[in-house]
Design a protein around this nucleic acid. Sequence first.
RNA 1: AGAGUUGGCGAGGUAGUUGCAGUUUGGUGUUUUUAAUACCAAAUUGAGGAAAGUCCGGGCUUCCAAAGACCAGACUGCUGGGUAACGCCCAGUGCGGGCAACCGUGAGGAAAGUGCCACAGAAACAUACCGCCAAAGAUUGAGCCAUAUCUUUGGUAAGGGUGCAAAGGUGCGGUAAGAGCGCACCAGCAGCAUCGAGAGGUGCUGGCUCGGUAAACCCCAGUCGGAAGCAAGGUCAAAGGAAACUAUGGUUGGUCUUUUACCGGUUUCCGUUGAAUAAGUACCGCCUGAGGCUUCUGGCAACAGGAGUCCCAGAUAGAUAGCUACCCUCAAGAUGCUAUCUUGAGAACAGAACCCGGCUUACGUCCAACUCUCUUU
RNA 2: GCGAGCGUAGCCAAGUGGUUAAGGCAGCGGAUUGUGGUUCCGCCAUUCGUGGGUUCGAGUCCCAUCGUUCGCC
Length: 124
Amino acid sequence: MGLPKANRLRHSREFKAVYKKGRRCSGKYLILRAFREMSPASGEETLPPTQVGISISQKVSKKAVVRNRIKRQIRGIIRSLLPQLPSGWKIVVIVKPQAQGCKYEDFLRELKQLLLTSEVLHGD
RNA sequence: AGAGUUGGCGAGGUAGUUGCAGUUUGGUGUUUUUAAUACCAAAUUGAGGAAAGUCCGGGCUUCCAAAGACCAGACUGCUGGGUAACGCCCAGUGCGGGCAACCGUGAGGAAAGUGCCACAGAAACAUACCGCCAAAGAUUGAGCCAUAUCUUUGGUAAGGGUGCAAAGGUGCGGUAAGAGCGCACCAGCAGCAUCGAGAGGUGCUGGCUCGGUAAACCCCAGUCGGAAGCAAGGUCAAAGGAAACUAUGGUUGGUCUUUUACCGGUUUCCGUUGAAUAAGUACCGCCUGAGGCUUCUGGCAACAGGAGUCCCAGAUAGAUAGCUACCCUCAAGAUGCUAUCUUGAGAACAGAACCCGGCUUACGUCCAACUCUCUUU
RNA sequence: GCGAGCGUAGCCAAGUGGUUAAGGCAGCGGAUUGUGGUUCCGCCAUUCGUGGGUUCGAGUCCCAUCGUUCGCC
């Protein structure tokens, strides 16, 4: 469940910018860093599409298979949520070591909650 | 039926659907055209036997200015073969383990030299503590003989004790006591004959002899240009500039000789950009290869050669997941008496990152062959 | 990708192939004290990360493996 290339964070610089300027929300298993580029002249139409990156360290698990599965599941959730997200955001999802034994539903619930609390997603 | 040994296959399958990456084709948009790039649609392909550990061997790339000599250095170590190469593989020899199938093997040299062998023991490359034996002398005694004890000189390595190990082992003869001193068998060494391509096997003869350790230094034989590694290295557009430190030198193990070749190096800051001193993935390298499959020939085999056929992952914050249906396998339960139904699971180890050949480690199921034991016919 | 080091008691650790593996902290028991601390004495490694091998004998030498820490591009 990969994301389209336009919706990915791709460079180390962009990650660093998000860490530096973005707001921070943490849950039980995940940490969210979000940052919106607000140039005063441009309107909603000219904003770049929202880009998302996932960061998972070797501390979560030494096994690449486990790390990749978590990444895929999170990416799948983001993909399903993508139409609801407003454009212009740069988001980094960091996986905590406690997330080792988590299931798809756990990530889904937590990620939705984090997006709401960080005011990226405006609930109804 | 149980216990065990060896080898092999495969890593659930098919269809649909949503989604991701590559390739090809078509279409649309952008840039001045060629072309490049983005999006859309269709077709097609999409992780492993270990992709892992990075323990060996290569290919490939760049640097070391070129040539030569010597010394270092590293690795390997029964024989023959295979291979691009290997510390790998195959076949054999010796030794060790197992009742056996079979398995393991770091298996050159200790009479080139040096070192070490704790404790114990007399002695651990060299000897005599207790013993045994012979001769001489002394002691008790007036003297002699015998015996005993002691001393000195010599012989001996059988016995005792020590130890991982005591100088070939066992038996018989022999001797003052003993000893390969002699004989038989065994083990080791040397020579000859014979078989084998060779490691070695077998037989005969001989003199009887020499501790262990080289995964201690070392000696011998053989192999190796060195260093880095795809973050190698290159293409693209552009624009380089400033400051500081260091150099009579430097150029990849060391020394020397000859010829000549090249030249600064490091750090910091500013700047244009898709990207700026660095992990630039924008592009190449980058997936046609010591390639796979089928078959024939040679070879005990590893493997080699010929023919046919196929194209089979190429990401770069890094592509394989979710759902549905059927089949197959397994487990549990019910009906029921050998089939049906229901539920659950499809595992274990584990994710390509330049590419190959091995080794090692992790790991679940199935199949085949063989060995031993027990029971029945 | 390339390389280097370390695993010894709960913790920090020493250890030229040769008894029963040195210390310190912690812990436990005892003595001293009216009680506690200080001080003193004693105990505490079924064996040196794991598995093989060499050796008469391995924590030490060799091979493989597991874990862990660090460096460079």
